[in-house]
Amino acid sequence: MTAEPRPASSPRRSGYLLIYGILAALTAAEIWIATLSLAAAVRTPVFLTLSFFKASLVAAFFMHLKSDSRYYLLIFLLPVAVVVVFGLVMLIR
C-alpha cells in the first residue's frame, strides 16, 4: 500500500522535538503542581486543562490531525464528544 504524500504543513524533525519538549515540560509541571497543597476547586481545572492541551498536541502534531484530512479529525472527535457528555452525565447522576 502506498502512503499518501506528506502534507505540506507536516512538522519537520525539529518541530517534533519542540512538541516533545513542551509535552515533557507540561508533565513536569503537573508533577510539581501535584506536590502543592492546592484546593480541589483549583487543581482539578488546572490538571484537566493541562491534560487537554497535552492530548491535543499529540493528536495535532504526532498523529498529524492538524495537517491531515478533516474527515479523520471528525471521525476522532465525534466519539470523544460523546464520551465527554456521557462522563458528565455519570458524574451528575
Binding site: 471521525i75 476522532f76 466519539p79 470523544v80 464520551v83 456521557f86 462522563g87 455519570m90 458524574l91 447522576r93
Partner: peptide, 17 residues
C-alpha cells in the same frame, strides 16, 4: 481508534463515577 475511544470512555466514566 474511534471505537477505542468509546471503549476507554466507558471505563473512564465508570472510574470517575
Amino acid at each position: 481508534l474511534a471505537s477505542e475511544v468509546m471503549f476507554f470512555g466507558g471505563l473512564i466514566a465508570a472510574f470517575l463515577h
